[in-house]
Amino acid sequence: MNTVDFTEKYYIDRRGSHSRKWDGEHLKFSRTDLLPLWVADMDFMAPQCIQDAICSYVKANPLGYTMTNPNYIEAVIGWYKCRHHCNLQAEWLTSAPNVITGIMWCIGAFTKPNDAITLLSPVYGAFDTSASSAQRQIIAVPMNRTEDNRYTVDYDAFENAITEHNVKLFIHCNPHNPIGHVWTEREMDRLFSICQRHNVLIISDEIHQDLITGPTEFTSALTVSKGAYADNMIAMSSLSKSFNMASLHHAEVIIPNEKLRSQFNAYKAHVYHTDSDVIAEAAITAAYTHPEAEAWLTDVLAVIRENYEYLCQELGMALPHIRISPMDGTYLAWIDFGAYVKAEDMHDVFENKCRIAPSFGEWFGGEDYATFVRLNLATSLENIKTATHNMIKHIHP
């Protein structure tokens, strides 16, 4: 399906639907008449096969207490094997309501108050708040930006931070939100070998694993160096991004090490009691097994690429000193407007002049990123054209 036909079929006006992105602007912004490109979900309906699976389950079954459906487990294992060349064992799988909750449970299960947790910045702000709210120290290691606007790791600084602060846990993000970087196996091998050398547990957030928009193939942290680090790792993912199902609260938590898995599940049982989310399991099973869902994913990636290419081309011509990071993964564009807008003017320019609600750069690592925005491109090309036109009109060379 071409991008025009896909948008016509699946795009939906979400205002008035209690959408956090479209109806919740008052939560973060000074006005409510903005074009929202902040919250990381899509403005597209889920594939019909997922809608049908949810409706079919509800019509055929009472919504009582349930156990995990083996078909769901098989679907997850099959998807990882076929799409990501990652061989999972059924017993490795446990769950959380979402990835951030899973990370919070890992922090509770494997660290103590005042322990140090490290991450590479800029990075999704919920990592920081999850750790700081649990009274853990956040050790952010800034990445270096290259002339072509990619980010690289200072491995010496990463290791020094670990040894100096006696870091217990590393939160890894692949693909990396907000910079759009898809980590190579070689890069992860260097990071993980440092963690292994200093007995640092690795948490790998792989929620954007299916949203690959550039040339670098996604590699799960579980498979790096033929699984050499899997025994010291917890990987997490969710279809909330891939198939736009964030309101179905379910994430896969994959823990190969039996001792770590038991420790995680014991902590989970202490703070959370529930049975399986049968609606989420039905939706995930359809997404991972139905050809229509995979075709939908292929088509939505084409829309995202088209939006990104349009944004880069138009902004690049009108604002030649703008710095846009290559978006090899996710649907999130990371853009530095520092050549044109002062840090203290960013909110006024975007909210009151451009009439756009972006994710502001300081949300991903503080004032060092105050001239950046993250823009969600998982919407119609018309919306991206409107946003681009407004930025060009109100941000002058």
Rank of each mutant, 00 (worst) to 15 (best):
residue 58 V to K: 12
residue 239 L to N: 15
residue 73 I to G: 04
residue 239 L to M: 12
residue 182 V to G: 06
residue 131 A to D: 02
residue 32 T to V: 15
residue 153 V to N: 02
residue 309 E to F: 06
residue 274 T to A: 15
residue 95 S to H: 09
residue 90 A to N: 04
residue 306 E to G: 05
residue 293 A to F: 01
residue 41 D to F: 07
residue 212 I to P: 15
residue 214 G to K: 04
residue 224 V to W: 04
residue 36 P to C: 01
residue 124 Y to S: 10
residue 196 Q to Y: 03
residue 254 I to N: 08
residue 133 S to I: 02
residue 85 H to C: 12
residue 304 I to R: 03
residue 82 C to N: 12
residue 366 G to E: 04
residue 284 I to V: 14
residue 307 N to M: 02
residue 295 A to C: 02
residue 56 S to I: 02
residue 109 A to D: 09
residue 353 K to G: 09
residue 283 A to R: 01
residue 9 K to Q: 13
residue 230 A to D: 12
residue 203 I to D: 00
residue 381 L to C: 11
residue 379 T to D: 10
residue 76 V to H: 00
residue 209 Q to P: 03
residue 45 M to W: 03
residue 133 S to D: 10
residue 211 L to K: 11
residue 36 P to H: 04
residue 34 L to W: 07
residue 276 S to Y: 06
residue 148 D to R: 05
residue 57 Y to D: 09
residue 322 I to A: 06
residue 176 H to I: 00
residue 357 A to K: 12
residue 35 L to G: 06
residue 372 F to M: 10
residue 118 T to D: 02
residue 176 H to M: 00
residue 348 D to A: 13
residue 150 R to W: 00
residue 301 L to T: 11
residue 199 N to H: 12
residue 55 C to G: 06
residue 247 S to I: 14
residue 331 Y to Q: 07
residue 351 E to H: 14
residue 68 T to N: 06
residue 344 E to G: 07
residue 281 E to A: 03
residue 101 T to I: 06
residue 207 I to L: 10
residue 44 F to C: 08
residue 135 Q to T: 10
residue 328 D to R: 04
residue 80 Y to L: 06
residue 285 T to R: 04
residue 338 G to Q: 07
residue 31 R to D: 03
residue 127 F to N: 09
residue 261 R to P: 09
residue 40 A to D: 13
residue 81 K to I: 00
residue 39 V to L: 13
residue 119 L to R: 05
residue 147 E to Y: 09
residue 160 N to M: 10
residue 227 G to V: 14
residue 48 Q to F: 01
residue 192 F to H: 08
residue 49 C to K: 01
residue 345 D to A: 15
residue 293 A to P: 00
residue 365 G to I: 08
residue 378 A to T: 12
residue 355 R to Q: 15
residue 360 F to E: 06
residue 13 D to G: 08
residue 120 L to M: 08
residue 306 E to L: 07
residue 72 Y to F: 14
residue 67 M to G: 11
residue 10 Y to P: 00
residue 152 T to P: 00
residue 113 P to H: 09
residue 106 C to P: 00
residue 309 E to M: 04
residue 198 H to V: 09
residue 71 N to M: 04
residue 287 A to H: 01
residue 375 L to I: 13
residue 102 G to C: 10
residue 371 T to A: 02
residue 72 Y to H: 08
residue 61 N to P: 12
residue 193 S to T: 09
residue 351 E to L: 11
residue 306 E to C: 10
residue 86 C to F: 07
residue 150 R to Q: 12
residue 99 V to E: 05
residue 62 P to A: 00
residue 231 D to V: 05
residue 388 T to H: 07
residue 267 Y to G: 03
residue 24 G to F: 09
residue 127 F to H: 14
residue 198 H to N: 14
residue 344 E to N: 15
residue 16 G to N: 08
residue 333 A to G: 05
residue 102 G to F: 01
residue 111 T to A: 13
residue 42 M to F: 14
residue 93 L to K: 09
residue 215 P to S: 15
residue 386 T to S: 14
residue 225 S to F: 03
residue 137 Q to G: 00
residue 384 I to C: 05
residue 217 E to Q: 14
residue 14 R to L: 15
residue 203 I to Y: 02
residue 162 I to G: 11
residue 234 I to P: 11
residue 284 I to S: 07
